Simulated assay, not measured.
Amino acid sequence: MGIISSRRRRSRLAPELDDQDLGKLLKYLLATTRSGTIAMTDLCVAQVSRLLERDPGDWDRRAHRMGVLADFLAGSHLPRSWATREPHNANALVLYAWSEVARARSQGSLEDAAVIDSCLRAAELAPEDPTPWVVILGAARLERWEQPQMFRVWNEVLARDRWNREAYLNMLGYLTPEEAGSRIQVLDFVDALCARMPADVPCAATELTAQVFQYHSILGRGGFEALVARNHWSQVMAAQALDRVAHTWVQPGLLRHARALADLNILAYALMAADRRHEARAALEALGGVVAPWPWQAGGDPLTEFEQAQRRAGL
Protein backbone atom coordinates (compact mmCIF):
# COMPACT_ATOMS: atom_id res chain seq x y z
CA MET A 1 0.00 0.00 0.00
CA GLY A 2 2.68 2.39 1.05
CA ILE A 3 1.00 3.56 4.28
CA ILE A 4 0.57 7.31 4.14
CA SER A 5 2.72 9.36 6.50
CA SER A 6 1.22 9.79 9.94
CA ARG A 7 1.53 13.56 9.59
CA ARG A 8 -2.04 14.76 9.91
CA ARG A 9 -3.66 15.95 6.73
CA ARG A 10 -7.03 17.44 6.00
CA SER A 11 -9.60 14.64 5.85
CA ARG A 12 -11.05 14.00 2.42
CA LEU A 13 -13.17 11.46 0.62
CA ALA A 14 -10.86 9.75 -1.85
CA PRO A 15 -12.43 6.82 -3.70
CA GLU A 16 -9.08 6.17 -5.38
CA LEU A 17 -7.45 5.79 -1.93
CA ASP A 18 -3.69 5.95 -2.57
CA ASP A 19 -3.86 5.07 -6.28
CA GLN A 20 -2.51 8.30 -7.77
CA ASP A 21 -3.04 7.27 -11.39
CA LEU A 22 -6.69 6.47 -10.69
CA GLY A 23 -7.08 9.75 -8.82
CA LYS A 24 -5.76 11.72 -11.80
CA LEU A 25 -8.19 9.96 -14.12
CA LEU A 26 -11.15 10.67 -11.83
CA LYS A 27 -10.22 14.35 -11.71
CA TYR A 28 -9.99 14.41 -15.50
CA LEU A 29 -13.38 12.74 -15.92
CA LEU A 30 -14.95 15.07 -13.35
CA ALA A 31 -13.51 18.15 -15.06
CA THR A 32 -14.80 16.89 -18.39
CA THR A 33 -18.28 16.46 -16.96
CA ARG A 34 -18.27 19.87 -15.27
CA SER A 35 -17.15 21.57 -18.45
CA GLY A 36 -20.36 20.40 -20.10
CA THR A 37 -18.73 17.79 -22.31
CA ILE A 38 -20.49 14.45 -22.08
CA ALA A 39 -17.95 11.97 -20.73
CA MET A 40 -18.07 9.54 -23.63
CA THR A 41 -15.59 11.10 -26.03
CA ASP A 42 -12.84 9.10 -27.67
CA LEU A 43 -10.35 10.83 -25.41
CA CYS A 44 -12.20 9.81 -22.23
CA VAL A 45 -12.44 6.22 -23.40
CA ALA A 46 -8.75 6.23 -24.32
CA GLN A 47 -7.81 7.49 -20.85
CA VAL A 48 -9.94 4.86 -19.12
CA SER A 49 -8.68 2.11 -21.40
CA ARG A 50 -5.06 3.09 -20.83
CA LEU A 51 -5.39 2.88 -17.06
CA LEU A 52 -7.18 -0.48 -17.13
CA GLU A 53 -4.47 -1.95 -19.34
CA ARG A 54 -1.75 -1.16 -16.81
CA ASP A 55 -0.43 -3.69 -14.31
CA PRO A 56 -1.56 -6.79 -16.22
CA GLY A 57 -2.09 -9.74 -13.93
CA ASP A 58 -2.48 -7.60 -10.80
CA TRP A 59 -6.09 -8.65 -10.27
CA ASP A 60 -6.36 -6.86 -6.95
CA ARG A 61 -5.36 -3.49 -8.43
CA ARG A 62 -7.55 -4.12 -11.48
CA ALA A 63 -10.63 -4.81 -9.35
CA HIS A 64 -10.04 -1.65 -7.32
CA ARG A 65 -9.73 0.53 -10.41
CA MET A 66 -12.62 -1.12 -12.20
CA GLY A 67 -14.91 -0.85 -9.17
CA VAL A 68 -14.13 2.80 -8.50
CA LEU A 69 -14.62 3.72 -12.15
CA ALA A 70 -17.86 1.75 -12.29
CA ASP A 71 -19.24 3.65 -9.29
CA PHE A 72 -18.09 6.96 -10.74
CA LEU A 73 -19.56 6.26 -14.20
CA ALA A 74 -22.77 4.56 -13.07
CA GLY A 75 -24.82 7.56 -14.20
CA SER A 76 -22.88 8.06 -17.42
CA HIS A 77 -23.37 6.70 -20.92
CA LEU A 78 -19.64 6.08 -21.33
CA PRO A 79 -19.53 2.40 -20.25
CA ARG A 80 -22.44 1.34 -22.48
CA SER A 81 -21.12 3.39 -25.38
CA TRP A 82 -17.65 1.89 -25.08
CA ALA A 83 -18.96 -1.69 -24.82
CA THR A 84 -21.21 -1.14 -27.84
CA ARG A 85 -18.36 0.24 -29.94
CA GLU A 86 -15.87 -2.43 -28.83
CA PRO A 87 -17.84 -5.63 -28.19
CA HIS A 88 -14.65 -7.70 -28.18
CA ASN A 89 -12.87 -5.58 -25.56
CA ALA A 90 -12.98 -7.37 -22.20
CA ASN A 91 -12.28 -4.15 -20.27
CA ALA A 92 -15.18 -2.37 -21.96
CA LEU A 93 -17.56 -5.26 -21.29
CA VAL A 94 -16.62 -5.59 -17.62
CA LEU A 95 -16.75 -1.84 -16.94
CA TYR A 96 -20.19 -1.66 -18.53
CA ALA A 97 -21.46 -4.62 -16.48
CA TRP A 98 -20.00 -3.33 -13.22
CA SER A 99 -21.41 0.16 -13.77
CA GLU A 100 -24.85 -1.39 -14.29
CA VAL A 101 -24.49 -3.34 -11.05
CA ALA A 102 -23.44 -0.13 -9.28
CA ARG A 103 -26.49 1.65 -10.67
CA ALA A 104 -28.73 -1.24 -9.65
CA ARG A 105 -27.49 -1.14 -6.05
CA SER A 106 -28.96 2.33 -5.66
CA GLN A 107 -32.17 1.41 -7.47
CA GLY A 108 -32.69 -1.95 -5.81
CA SER A 109 -32.88 -4.08 -8.95
CA LEU A 110 -30.87 -4.98 -12.03
CA GLU A 111 -32.72 -3.71 -15.08
CA ASP A 112 -30.39 -4.80 -17.89
CA ALA A 113 -30.39 -8.57 -18.45
CA ALA A 114 -27.35 -8.19 -20.72
CA VAL A 115 -25.05 -7.65 -17.74
CA ILE A 116 -24.42 -11.36 -17.16
CA ASP A 117 -23.91 -11.97 -20.89
CA SER A 118 -21.36 -9.15 -21.03
CA CYS A 119 -19.42 -10.73 -18.18
CA LEU A 120 -19.49 -14.17 -19.79
CA ARG A 121 -18.21 -12.72 -23.07
CA ALA A 122 -15.45 -10.93 -21.18
CA ALA A 123 -14.56 -14.20 -19.43
CA GLU A 124 -14.19 -15.88 -22.82
CA LEU A 125 -11.99 -13.05 -24.09
CA ALA A 126 -9.79 -13.04 -20.96
CA PRO A 127 -10.16 -16.50 -19.40
CA GLU A 128 -7.47 -15.87 -16.77
CA ASP A 129 -9.18 -12.73 -15.40
CA PRO A 130 -11.33 -13.20 -12.26
CA THR A 131 -12.99 -9.78 -12.60
CA PRO A 132 -15.90 -10.80 -14.87
CA TRP A 133 -16.82 -13.48 -12.36
CA VAL A 134 -16.60 -10.97 -9.51
CA VAL A 135 -19.12 -8.77 -11.31
CA ILE A 136 -21.40 -11.76 -11.84
CA LEU A 137 -21.32 -12.31 -8.07
CA GLY A 138 -22.45 -8.72 -7.56
CA ALA A 139 -25.27 -9.11 -10.08
CA ALA A 140 -26.29 -12.47 -8.61
CA ARG A 141 -26.63 -10.89 -5.16
CA LEU A 142 -29.08 -8.37 -6.55
CA GLU A 143 -31.07 -11.13 -8.24
CA ARG A 144 -30.95 -13.40 -5.16
CA TRP A 145 -29.52 -16.43 -6.94
CA GLU A 146 -29.73 -19.76 -5.14
CA GLN A 147 -26.67 -20.71 -3.12
CA PRO A 148 -25.45 -23.55 -5.39
CA GLN A 149 -25.33 -21.08 -8.30
CA MET A 150 -23.53 -18.49 -6.21
CA PHE A 151 -20.89 -20.93 -5.05
CA ARG A 152 -20.24 -22.07 -8.62
CA VAL A 153 -19.44 -18.49 -9.60
CA TRP A 154 -17.45 -18.03 -6.38
CA ASN A 155 -15.30 -21.04 -7.30
CA GLU A 156 -14.61 -19.53 -10.73
CA VAL A 157 -13.16 -16.46 -9.01
CA LEU A 158 -11.06 -18.43 -6.54
CA ALA A 159 -9.65 -20.61 -9.31
CA ARG A 160 -8.15 -17.43 -10.79
CA ASP A 161 -7.43 -15.32 -7.68
CA ARG A 162 -7.41 -17.18 -4.37
CA TRP A 163 -7.73 -14.15 -2.06
CA ASN A 164 -9.86 -11.81 -4.16
CA ARG A 165 -11.15 -9.12 -1.82
CA GLU A 166 -14.31 -8.23 -3.78
CA ALA A 167 -15.32 -11.87 -4.10
CA TYR A 168 -15.05 -12.54 -0.37
CA LEU A 169 -16.98 -9.40 0.53
CA ASN A 170 -19.69 -10.21 -2.01
CA MET A 171 -20.11 -13.70 -0.58
CA LEU A 172 -20.06 -12.33 2.96
CA GLY A 173 -22.86 -9.89 2.13
CA TYR A 174 -24.84 -12.59 0.33
CA LEU A 175 -24.64 -14.95 3.32
CA THR A 176 -25.92 -12.41 5.86
CA PRO A 177 -29.46 -12.80 7.25
CA GLU A 178 -30.40 -9.58 5.47
CA GLU A 179 -29.82 -11.26 2.11
CA ALA A 180 -29.88 -15.00 1.46
CA GLY A 181 -28.14 -16.60 4.43
CA SER A 182 -27.99 -16.69 8.21
CA ARG A 183 -25.75 -15.69 11.07
CA ILE A 184 -24.50 -19.28 11.32
CA GLN A 185 -23.50 -19.29 7.65
CA VAL A 186 -21.58 -16.05 8.11
CA LEU A 187 -19.69 -17.53 11.07
CA ASP A 188 -18.88 -20.72 9.17
CA PHE A 189 -17.70 -18.73 6.15
CA VAL A 190 -15.44 -16.49 8.23
CA ASP A 191 -14.08 -19.38 10.31
CA ALA A 192 -13.17 -21.35 7.20
CA LEU A 193 -11.38 -18.32 5.77
CA CYS A 194 -9.46 -17.44 8.93
CA ALA A 195 -8.24 -21.01 9.30
CA ARG A 196 -6.13 -20.79 6.14
CA MET A 197 -5.78 -17.08 5.25
CA PRO A 198 -2.37 -15.34 5.43
CA ALA A 199 -2.41 -12.12 7.46
CA ASP A 200 -1.64 -9.73 4.60
CA VAL A 201 -3.88 -10.87 1.74
CA PRO A 202 -6.39 -8.51 0.05
CA CYS A 203 -9.38 -10.19 1.75
CA ALA A 204 -7.87 -9.82 5.24
CA ALA A 205 -10.69 -7.52 6.39
CA THR A 206 -13.46 -10.08 5.78
CA GLU A 207 -13.69 -11.12 9.45
CA LEU A 208 -13.75 -7.56 10.76
CA THR A 209 -16.26 -6.56 8.08
CA ALA A 210 -18.55 -9.34 9.28
CA GLN A 211 -18.39 -7.92 12.80
CA VAL A 212 -19.22 -4.42 11.53
CA PHE A 213 -22.16 -5.86 9.61
CA GLN A 214 -23.48 -7.43 12.81
CA TYR A 215 -22.91 -4.21 14.76
CA HIS A 216 -24.86 -2.24 12.16
CA SER A 217 -27.63 -4.84 12.30
CA ILE A 218 -27.93 -4.29 16.05
CA LEU A 219 -28.00 -0.51 15.60
CA GLY A 220 -30.69 -0.90 12.96
CA ARG A 221 -33.04 -2.61 15.38
CA GLY A 222 -33.34 0.59 17.38
CA GLY A 223 -34.65 0.83 20.90
CA PHE A 224 -32.73 -0.57 23.83
CA GLU A 225 -30.59 -2.88 21.64
CA ALA A 226 -29.22 0.10 19.73
CA LEU A 227 -28.47 1.93 22.98
CA VAL A 228 -26.23 -0.91 24.17
CA ALA A 229 -24.87 -1.84 20.74
CA ARG A 230 -21.34 -1.00 21.89
CA ASN A 231 -21.46 -4.16 24.00
CA HIS A 232 -21.12 -6.10 20.76
CA TRP A 233 -17.42 -5.25 20.70
CA SER A 234 -16.85 -6.78 24.13
CA GLN A 235 -18.19 -10.13 22.93
CA VAL A 236 -15.49 -12.76 22.45
CA MET A 237 -15.57 -13.06 18.66
CA ALA A 238 -15.75 -9.32 18.01
CA ALA A 239 -13.01 -8.53 20.52
CA GLN A 240 -10.77 -11.23 19.08
CA ALA A 241 -11.32 -9.98 15.54
CA LEU A 242 -10.06 -6.56 16.66
CA ASP A 243 -7.22 -7.98 18.74
CA ARG A 244 -5.88 -9.91 15.75
CA VAL A 245 -5.37 -6.82 13.60
CA ALA A 246 -5.35 -3.70 15.78
CA HIS A 247 -1.58 -3.61 16.16
CA THR A 248 -0.46 -5.28 12.94
CA TRP A 249 -2.39 -3.47 10.23
CA VAL A 250 -0.94 -0.10 11.24
CA GLN A 251 2.62 -1.32 10.76
CA PRO A 252 4.16 0.22 7.61
CA GLY A 253 4.47 -2.27 4.79
CA LEU A 254 2.19 -5.01 6.11
CA LEU A 255 -0.89 -4.17 4.04
CA ARG A 256 0.03 -3.55 0.43
CA HIS A 257 -3.15 -4.41 -1.44
CA ALA A 258 -5.03 -1.78 -3.44
CA ARG A 259 -7.80 -1.18 -0.88
CA ALA A 260 -5.62 -1.30 2.23
CA LEU A 261 -6.68 2.22 3.22
CA ALA A 262 -10.33 1.16 3.01
CA ASP A 263 -9.54 -1.67 5.42
CA LEU A 264 -7.78 0.73 7.78
CA ASN A 265 -10.95 2.85 7.75
CA ILE A 266 -12.90 -0.24 8.86
CA LEU A 267 -10.37 -0.87 11.62
CA ALA A 268 -10.43 2.74 12.87
CA TYR A 269 -14.25 2.77 12.85
CA ALA A 270 -14.52 -0.53 14.74
CA LEU A 271 -11.94 0.50 17.35
CA MET A 272 -13.80 3.76 17.97
CA ALA A 273 -17.11 1.89 18.22
CA ALA A 274 -15.46 -0.38 20.79
CA ASP A 275 -14.14 2.69 22.66
CA ARG A 276 -10.55 1.53 22.14
CA ARG A 277 -9.46 5.07 21.39
CA HIS A 278 -5.72 4.71 21.92
CA GLU A 279 -5.52 1.91 19.34
CA ALA A 280 -7.89 3.77 17.02
CA ARG A 281 -5.56 6.76 17.08
CA ALA A 282 -2.78 4.76 15.40
CA ALA A 283 -5.15 3.64 12.64
CA LEU A 284 -6.50 7.16 12.13
CA GLU A 285 -2.97 8.55 11.90
CA ALA A 286 -1.96 5.91 9.38
CA LEU A 287 -4.85 6.95 7.14
CA GLY A 288 -3.44 10.43 6.63
CA GLY A 289 -6.97 11.84 6.31
CA VAL A 290 -8.10 9.48 3.51
CA VAL A 291 -11.75 8.64 4.25
CA ALA A 292 -13.68 5.74 2.78
CA PRO A 293 -17.46 6.35 2.98
CA TRP A 294 -18.20 2.93 4.46
CA PRO A 295 -18.55 2.28 7.35
CA TRP A 296 -18.50 5.89 8.60
CA GLN A 297 -21.67 6.75 6.66
CA ALA A 298 -23.69 4.52 8.98
CA GLY A 299 -23.64 7.36 11.51
CA GLY A 300 -24.24 10.22 9.07
CA ASP A 301 -21.94 12.22 6.84
CA PRO A 302 -18.73 10.15 6.61
CA LEU A 303 -16.36 13.13 6.74
CA THR A 304 -18.10 14.52 9.80
CA GLU A 305 -18.07 11.13 11.50
CA PHE A 306 -14.40 10.63 10.67
CA GLU A 307 -13.39 14.05 12.01
CA GLN A 308 -15.38 13.49 15.19
CA ALA A 309 -13.52 10.20 15.61
CA GLN A 310 -10.22 12.04 15.22
CA ARG A 311 -11.16 14.49 17.94
CA ARG A 312 -12.38 11.77 20.29
CA ALA A 313 -9.13 9.87 19.73
CA GLY A 314 -7.15 12.96 20.68
CA LEU A 315 -5.84 13.92 17.26
Rank of each mutant, 00 (worst) to 15 (best):
S11L: 06
L13A: 00
E16H: 15
Q20L: 13
G23I: 11
Y28D: 10
T33M: 09
L43T: 14
Q47D: 07
S49Q: 08
D55A: 11
D58V: 08
D60G: 06
R62Y: 13
L73V: 06
R85F: 08
P87A: 02
P87H: 03
A90F: 07
Y96H: 14
A102L: 03
S118T: 03
L120E: 12
A122Q: 08
A123E: 08
A123Q: 02
A126Y: 13
A139H: 09
A140N: 05
A140V: 05
L142R: 11
R144E: 03
R144F: 10
W145V: 15
F151T: 12
F151M: 12
W154I: 06
N164C: 12
Y168C: 04
L169T: 03
N170M: 08
G173V: 05
I184S: 14
Q185E: 15
Q185Y: 01
L193W: 07
Q211C: 12
F213S: 09
V236N: 14
A241S: 15
V245Y: 00
V245H: 00
L255E: 00
R256Y: 04
N265M: 09
L267N: 03
Y269H: 11
Y269V: 00
A270K: 01
E279V: 09
A282L: 15
G288H: 11
V291W: 03
W296G: 01
A298E: 03
G299W: 08
G300I: 07
T304F: 06
Q308L: 11
A309L: 02
A313I: 02
A313R: 00
L315E: 02
